[in-house]
């Protein structure tokens, strides 16, 4: 029996790697769209699975790749429920506005459930070395950061926004596990206050600049607004991603993310321009470029042997939560 030796230690970090290519993904992406149209949307569930399998399968860490295991039929069921809910919500808010308030309240109440189900579905369908991830957050914890804190936001003039974002990230990471081994999140709300403080200054400066430009020339204002928006977005993504990865621990193992604002900004800018110029055909390359860059800047720093993670027995989770969450744009990504 040949067993792999320890693959790295604190002095030998393991590098994440993305091995996909834009050209190869373009073909998958296009066939996905084509079959989705041809089947009046039914295929979209399979399309999602193939897309995720492509991205997970090409994300490698120390000679092993990630695996996306979701069953397209579970996703299809979720999508049908979400689609029906979307139609009802839209029809009611257009034609019976008073009732839409009630529907809105119901939707708010359901949100934490959607978030929890969606995170569990995604985690349990992600595997590495044939060990699945897990998520065991509950409704109460999700309700605190997806209902209570958002309601308090206006009363605190938005000052607790960093606390809310911290709580949402903490919900994801502290309740996640690889096999039976739980993740730990060691960032505090203070870390988030620093980032949002800087974002506030950048945003204020950008608005001031635009306020000066627009009266001079509408065109110049619009042309400047795009890079400013992308820079703001790149700054936020980089700092939050880096913070979240760098403060996440799996036992004594850790992650090291080193995204650079300038690199991400240039990626966003060139991607956006190329997507607009190609009427969307560049989207697959844009996705691959981002995935490659993110992997390049991410390392796993093992504290020792990584062969000993143990799997746990899992029950199946329906796709309904994840799909409905996606449809209504509940943002739960890292």
């Amino acid at each position: 029996m040949m067993s792999e030796q320890i693959q790295g230690d604190a002095t030998h970090p393991m590098q994440f790697e993305f091995t996909g290519s834009g050209g190869e993904y373009f073909k998958i992406w296009l066939v996905n769209i084509f079959l989705t149209i041809l089947t009046l949307g039914i295929y979209s569930a399979w399309a999602k699975v193939r897309k995720n399998r492509y991205f997970y399968g090409n994300t490698r860490l120390g000679d092993a790749s990630f695996d996306y295991l979701a069953n397209p039929v579970a996703i299809l069921k979720g999508r049908l429920i979400a689609f029906f809910a979307f139609v009802v919500y839209f029809a009611v808010s257009e034609f019976v506005p008073p009732l839409s308030l009630l529907l809105g309240l119901i939707f708010i109440g359901v949100t934490p459930w959607l978030v929890v189900k969606s995170l569990a579905f995604r985690a349990r369908n992600t595997a590495f070395r044939n060990i699945r991830f897990d998520f065991k957050g509950d409704y109460g914890a999700a309700a605190r950061v997806y209902i209570l804190l958002p309601i308090l936001l206006p009363f605190t003039l938005g000052l607790i926004y960093p606390v809310m974002v911290h709580g949402q990230k903490d919900l994801v990471i502290s309740n996640s596990a690889y096999g039976t081994t739980g993740f730990r999140f060691e960032a505090g709300a203070g870390n988030f206050y620093r980032i949002f403080g800087m974002l506030f200054l950048i945003g204020a400066a950008a608005i001031a600049l635009l306020a000066m430009l627009f009266p001079v020339s509408k065109e110049a204002g619009m042309i400047t607004a795009l890079p400013l928006y992308l820079f703001f977005f790149a700054f936020m993504t980089c700092h939050i991603s880096n913070l979240v990865y760098n403060k996440s621990f799996l036992e004594q193992h850790s992650l090291q993310s080193d995204l650079k604002v300038y690199d991400v900004f240039m990626l966003y800018l060139t991607n956006t321009i190329a997507i607009v110029l190609t009427l969307g055909l560049f989207i697959p390359w844009a996705n691959v470029r981002l995935a490659r860059y993110r992997a390049e800047r991410l390392q796993f720093i093992p504290a020792g042997d990584i062969d000993g993670f143990v799997a746990r027995e899992l029950e199946n989770v329906s796709g309904a939560g994840e799909e409905m969450g996606e449809m209504f744009d509940v943002n739960v990504g890292l």
Binding site: E4, F128, R129, I131, G179, G308
Partner: peptide
């Protein structure tokens, strides 16, 4: 991978 632990066996 045997599905019980994360150990890799080259085979």
């Amino acid at each position: 991978y045997d599905g019980k632990t994360s150990r890799k066996i080259s085979t």
